[in-house]
Design a protein around this nucleic acid. Sequence first.
DNA 1: TTCATATTTCGATGATAATTTAAATATGCG
DNA 2: CGCATATTTAAATTATCATCGAAATATGAA
Lengths: 236, 236
Amino acid sequence: MNAYPKITMITSLIGDPTRAAMLDALMGGHALPAGELAYIPGVTPQTASSHLSKLVKGNLIAVEQHGRHRYYRLASQEVAELMELISTMSPPVQIRSLRQSQEMEKVRHARTCYDHLAGKLGVALTQALITKGYVAHRSETEFDVTEQGIEHFRSLGLGLDLTTMKVNRRIFAKRCLDWSERIHHIGGFLGAVIAKHFFEMKWIVRMEGGSRAVRLTEEGRTKLQALYSIAMEDLV
Amino acid sequence: MNAYPKITMITSLIGDPTRAAMLDALMGGHALPAGELAYIPGVTPQTASSHLSKLVKGNLIAVEQHGRHRYYRLASQEVAELMELISTMSPPVQIRSLRQSQEMEKVRHARTCYDHLAGKLGVALTQALITKGYVAHRSETEFDVTEQGIEHFRSLGLGLDLTTMKVNRRIFAKRCLDWSERIHHIGGFLGAVIAKHFFEMKWIVRMEGGSRAVRLTEEGRTKLQALYSIAMEDLV
DNA sequence: TTCATATTTCGATGATAATTTAAATATGCG
DNA sequence: CGCATATTTAAATTATCATCGAAATATGAA
């Protein structure tokens, strides 16, 4: 039914460094106000506003107004997946300053990928869940949750609808390729629920500065060791 | 190990209309000389040369010199997949001329997608293979080839290594989402082998003008009807 | 060697789009 | 209401980059 797609619509939008930085910030999963989205790439609010309206028009992000603030978020999971895919194909940027290097280190160590955990933490957690027999590789692009896994997640109190899970014996647990580690980690619905739980339990907290980086708390460290035998050495 | 990826490298390259048209032409799977890649988007050889060198530097395409010609092709399967994915997310372009409309119609009717068949022909063929019981849905992203299917492809003389296929009972038959039909069709290794066979048998031929469109021959029509009960009405 | 073709390099031009300054709108607070 | 904050709109400036003409290089053919 459709005519030829105009792919430059999307790519030229992501192709601008300022807009790319904005989208990247929104990959953290949080909706951010226009002001913050101006500060992050280091442009004036006017410039940011211009970019944001273009991104909205191009259906890459969506707005929600709360009082005098306008909160922007990624328009869909699809957009996040596209960004992550492009990241895995993109060349690494060369590090110029110590400050930049430290920021990169944080992001690679642990971050959110739209709505689930990524970086070394995300990968280590995925590996641990496999080792413990809670999840297993299903296919090129999906994970399976095992019987033990269902029991385990129930005991954690994740609030998953276990009956639905049982019906088709399968959870939407997408394998998400990590650009920094080049290893798959758990994304999809399960990934989102796990990340949400980690935040609620205060095992991880977001780092200041509006980046995607997250920090493991003391409590989180203890729990990860106890539940999944993940030591801090695994995350270095 | 990697630092933060510079995603604007790729997206800004694809973001230019001229370069996008070049990449799209190369999605046909054929390597094309610089001259042709200037003619298709309608720019001078000088302009084309400038774009081509950028695309090479960005690892999106690769060159091969034959005499005084330089043949350009997509750098990898990955690039083709990225292009196709972006296409499914992109808005349709509005048709302005009859000429343009006819070209779009051809492309939607039958085309190559890097190395396999797409468009209505690709989708109809896939449906037929499923109906006949030769292939089956395996997962969200893959097809399975059945026992009958293995037998069928052998009888066609596709030159597939059947022993390897039997070992894991599974062929790398990727489900490729079609931007024009929004339905999956067979890609991956199997898709490439099928398309190659169709070309060799002269059931399909490439259309002139360097686009991705292909045309079904009289012979092809007869064969498709006989083998898969595909009538021309299915392709309208 | 000489000529024609394919392609690239260089330098200049021009168009597009990001950015900025200035001003407007809209919301919340006292 | 009056003022501060958050954000957008409009107009002007500037920077980037695609494009093209001119010239160079490289290969093949005569």
